[in-house]
Write a protein that binds this DNA or RNA. Structure first.
Length: 554
RNA sequence: GGUCCCAUGGUCAAGCGGUUCAAGACGCAACCCUCUCAAGGUUGAAUCACGGGUUCGAUUCCCGUUGGGAUCACCA
């Protein structure tokens, strides 16, 4: 028997299938030629990262805009860093952002689709089938080097300023004869499996990237580990095998992978498999002390999508913002189509920029405001309550007292051409609306009323007392405001700014001063939404009580 | 450090050798509107990193410099 075959059998006695069997089991998909099959392949090591969300949005959009397939694969081969439940959490968070895979991992015990399993930890056998053939062909070999030995090699290389890595004459185990390898395996010495590279570091290969064009890069000559001692594959190998059998047409991933492209290219070639298209996405960055850097989970709260949930940014706002980074023509498209509907936008890799965008919370807030302004008051209340129930009990408490009342508040100047844009996120609501609730109002005025000190308190009392007596709640907005002007005029306030400015000495103030005293009495604040609507949301009794209290009447 | 990627205003960016005073958006400033705020309107400040080429002509093409980023694991 061929010694290599003997070695392969010794290493993988339980494996009987061949690559041919796998090809038969996982035939190509039946899709139109232009359809792109993309995937998102996170590892379950924590919550969803904003950069990952960006990547999955791009992958998803590419598949959707070409009538292709978007699937989810869980890269759970790093058992040390794996966090329990992270896979399902990732899935949930993705779903929150309306990114629902067509197939793939759908929970730890569920798969959607027939090309699975979609959890790499459950694909160990598939990898071994491929590796067994590689060993037979002399394209992979067991490596018995210990971490200490590898460390030594690296030290030697560093000292002599050579490129670090397991390659050439440093790759000791590649020179083991099959018999030596067989004996070592038999002896029970732990080993990993390495891919035997035939590349030359001095040769350049050219790889096409869908968004960057051709990349010239040195051939790989390192014998990378493809199977770890725990029997699970490394990323490089799993990527090649999985994206082949799962029929990925375009691999979308962060640009940090460009440097390992030669490894992947060489393995695809060695296996005689068709190379997928690659699209290496720019990394979302963050300004830190004047320097750009990759958005980091540890340092940046907005790096975890949880941040957006906690703050109460609408998921659409986040998606819109991300898409505006992903495709430079998207923002213009929203303006022209007066729509934020991502599903109607034709996404294209060619419209992606090449360098990483700095994450801009300002612009996110802008889009979020614009989006929230398109919601109906009912929808707004519903979402606010969902948010508050989870993250802001104080707000939830207010809303639940009377949802119809809260919806009225949300409806202030909403149903018009230029709706108010007070809220970028649901957490903005509470401080703006709390004066509508009596107990909150009492808390606000504990610090006193910020009345204008230039207007005598007696005059304020007079005007507001008159207001209680004379206000007509049935008037429409314009008429009501005229009536307020008339009220002010009675006490020497100019009806408008021009009159006042023309003759400041003739007036005690102007109508805005009247509005201000009323506003302060009713809200405890100098700023608030349109008074007219406040007057129609608060009950008459509340209005009168608040005014009386403000001017010191029992 | 080696290798690779990138380089237009504070940010996101149009541009793809010759009408562009170098679009647009966010942010910023001013003004207008206005009962304050949030909006809305108008206007404004602000950019082609630098040096060489190529060319009749470079923001655009090439080279170099500089700067930023990524990567060099039995992690992905």
């Amino acid at each position: 028997m061929d010694k290599l075959v003997e070695l392969a059998e010794l290493m993988f006695p339980e494996i009987k299938e061949t690559i041919g069997d796998l090809e038969a089991k996982y035939p190509p998909r039946n899709l139109i030629p232009s359809a792109e099959v993309t995937r998102f392949a996170p590892s379950p090591t924590g919550y969803l990262h904003t950069g990952s969300l960006f990547t999955s949005l791009v992958s998803y959009s590419l598949a959707k805009s070409t009538k292709g397939v978007f699937f989810l694969r869980l890269e759970d081969t790093d058992t040390k860093r794996e966090i329990k439940g992270a896979g399902e959490m990732l899935l949930r968070e993705l779903k929150n952002f309306k990114i629902v895979p067509d197939e793939g991992y759908a929970g730890d015990d569920v798969d959607k689709g027939i090309l699975g399993p979609y959890m790499q930890s459950r694909r160990a056998k598939i990898y071994k089938i491929v590796i067994k053939e590689l060993v037979k062909k002399g394209l992979a070999y067991p490596c018995f080097c210990t971490p200490e030995e590898l460390e030594e090699i690296r030290e030697v290389q560093e000292a002599s300023k050579q490129i670090p890595g397991y390659y050439g004459s440093y790759a000791k185990c590649r020179y083991l004869t099959p018999d030596e390898a067989i004996n070592l395996v038999k002896s029970g010495k732990p080993y990993v499996v390495r891919f035997k590279s035939h590349g030359n570091h001095n040769n350049k290969i050219r790889v096409h990237d869908e968004i960057r064009g051709d990349i010239d890069i040195a051939e790989n000559d390192i014998d990378v580990v493809i199977l770890k001692s725990d029997g699970l594959p490394t990323y490089h190998f799993a990527h090649v095998v999985d994206d082949h059998f799962m029929g990925t047409t375009t691999v979308t991933r962060g640009e940090e992978w460009i440097s390992s492209l030669p490894i992947h290219v060489e393995m695809f070639k060695a296996l005689n498999w068709r190379l997928p298209k690659y699209a290496h996405l720019p990394l979302i960055q963050k300004l830190d002390n004047g320097n750009k850097r990759k958005l980091s989970k540890r340092k940046d709260p907005e790096a975890a999508v949880n941040f957006f949930f906690e703050q109460g940014y609408p998921v659409e706002g986040v998606l819109i913002y991300l898409m505006s980074i992903a495709n430079s023509n998207f923002e213009q498209w929203t303006l022209e189509n007066k729509s934020f509907d991502l599903s109607k936008f034709k996404f294209s890799l060619s419209k992606m920029s090449l360098d990483g965008a700095l994450f801009d919370l300002n612009k996110l807030a802008y889009f979020a405001k614009e989006f929230l302004a398109t919601l109906s008051a009912q929808e707004m209340s519903k979402r606010a309550l969902e948010y508050a129930n989870k993250y802001q009990p104080a707000l939830a408490d207010l809303i639940k007292r009377d949802e119809a009342y809260f919806t009225k508040i949300m409806n202030i100047e909403r149903d018009k051409e230029n709706p108010r844009k007070d809220y970028a996120k649901f957490s903005d609501i509470y401080p703006i609306v709390r004066f509508f609730y009596d107990d909150e109002y009492q808390k606000i005025i504990q610090n006193g009323y910020p009345f204008n000190p230039n207007i005598k308190r007696e005059l304020i009392a007079q005007v507001l007392t008159d207001f209680i007596k004379s206000n007509d709640y049935s008037l429409n907005e314009a008429d009501w405001f005229n009536s307020l002007k008339a009220l002010g005029a009675k006490y020497g306030f100019a009806a408008n700014r021009k009159d006042y400015k023309a003759n400041p000495s003739q007036y005690v103030g102007m109508v805005s001063d009247v509005a201000e005293m009323l506003r302060i009495a009713l809200t405890g604040n100098k700023n608030s939404p349109n008074l007219y609507y406040i007057l129609h949301i608060l009950s008459k009794e509340t209005i009168e009580n608040r005014i009386k209290k403000a001017i010191g009447v029992k």
